[in-house]
Design a protein around this nucleic acid. Sequence first.
DNA 1: GCAATTCACGTTAGCGCTAACGTCATTGAT
DNA 2: ATCAATGACGTTAGCGCTAACGTGAATTGC
Lengths: 318, 318
Amino acid sequence: MTVSRAIRGVEGVSAQKRAEILHAAQSIGYRPNRNAASLAASYSTLIGISLPTLFNEVFADILDGMRRTFELAGFEIVLDNSDYDPHREAGWVERMLDWHPAAIVLSGIDHTQSVREQLRQAAMPTLEIWDVCDDPIDICVGIDHEAAGKLLGKHLLQLGYRRPVFVGVDAGRDPRAEKRLLGLSAIFRDAGREAVPVIRTQKHASFEAGMTGTTSLLGSSALRPDCICYLNDHMAFGGLTTCERHGLDVPGDIGIAGFNDLGINLVLAKPLTTVLTPRLLIGSLGAQQLLARIHGAKVDRCRVMATTLVAGMTTRQL
Amino acid sequence: MTVSRAIRGVEGVSAQKRAEILHAAQSIGYRPNRNAASLAASYSTLIGISLPTLFNEVFADILDGMRRTFELAGFEIVLDNSDYDPHREAGWVERMLDWHPAAIVLSGIDHTQSVREQLRQAAMPTLEIWDVCDDPIDICVGIDHEAAGKLLGKHLLQLGYRRPVFVGVDAGRDPRAEKRLLGLSAIFRDAGREAVPVIRTQKHASFEAGMTGTTSLLGSSALRPDCICYLNDHMAFGGLTTCERHGLDVPGDIGIAGFNDLGINLVLAKPLTTVLTPRLLIGSLGAQQLLARIHGAKVDRCRVMATTLVAGMTTRQL
DNA sequence: GCAATTCACGTTAGCGCTAACGTCATTGAT
DNA sequence: ATCAATGACGTTAGCGCTAACGTGAATTGC
């Protein structure tokens, strides 16, 4: 028992004895068994994190922001990729809970009812990250995606665009993108325009998906957009090169807008018009909030971070 | 005990009893405690994976390839980012072993001596992925980076390039890149040229790093390269736009080559000359080999995958 | 028809820790 | 001198599983 206390750094051991014990442990190569500790103490140093995908700078950024904070606090990260499938996520949450982790992090706020119930019933500290709502499972930190869509919409409207088209992925694959589309659409509807038409691709939101979506958009004679809004900057860049390949001048013939202000935007001759999202900040703030929550402190249930419009050179200048 | 058997699907329970037990478990919401199982059985369903970073399509691809295989086999992934620091990796391996995982996956073959010793002494199934050598800790699956560097070097030489410069990151930050540089350099040295000069940036291998490195390269009057080889395609693209911003025509004034054939290459008007690496394949094959190893099967200690030269439009045409 | 085998299921012990509660010496207040 | 408080360390029990070894009935072989 004294050894256990000494190793965990718990009070009740004299400095001399502690040094003695640590030295002995070192010399025989003793390592505590974390499974046994977890079992006996009913607390854990595992944090489960479910992300839709890692092929997306957004989640890599958010994860990086969290990782550093959790690591300093001595937690290990158990990762899952849900591939944007709520049922996969639900299955993972169930299995994850069998490990009795210290906390769970989920992407966004759209989860199956069973996930919500299980996490709440287990009184598991749970962080929903990247999207926000009034009634999170436990706490949430992210941005208001609908507002971000409106931010972009207002800017495009102000620049004189009237017939935007949105290029995204299959409905339901990315609920946040749908909310941004909703906000964008609302702005144009308020301005007396029709709802923003949508082109969807089956791929994930990659450079290639931007190309695929744009090719089918430009091939369809029905839509004659004056600007194209993409799910994110990578799709937008794929779209940009596709437009140019089709002989269209950007922004002369058509405007292009992305989302997130990803790393590529720093090196483009023609930087994308986009919306900057503070991903690293969301990650680190989220992790801090969650740690506080694990330690029983009272924290805000919901933290909404600001987004910033980035006026690039792929849309008209004011 | 019968319940334990029924739930694990182990032999020795009649079909009727099993159904009865599973039904009862379902109805009371019973979930097995994995910490207890791990403690009692001395086997685990955790697999620890250490990657240098997720801001790199390469490791996201490899992880994705592994993930699917491990998931089907019922394992959970505990992830670490070493930030290319062997000592961080070593610390994580030590802590990870305290969980008594089923296996460990490390990136590359360059690890601290203590990591090698600990893993070997624990007889831990260990996969070293993305780089290969004759004496892996346990098994390895990847590509021959030096050979890949030579592949690119031969191609550039054949195209008539004589004064290449390599743009990468700080020495030691990416041992694989150093090996590719070694191969590249060897080709030009064999052809009677000097060793390939190197420009290094302190950032990670991003679009921005390509820009930064290229800016300092073009600013230095000492080097007058006829082509620039980058650590990877993202850096190459950052370099490409930077060259063009400096008024250089690519490939007219200067050639540019990347590495990996990343997703962006699909949408570029001027596709990069690069070397295709089979990342997904490496990931899934590696995972399969590791699973076989976990189950005690004999597997090849080393599997080397082929790379393919991609002749793009950022270098002269033959 | 009886021992030997097989099968379904149960009992015991222990995996390596930690919470909770001893024990005993030391300290300090009265 | 007496007793309560404090601090350092030890003892006991149990976290929830599973390996290994019963047990007792049904089946098999000869």
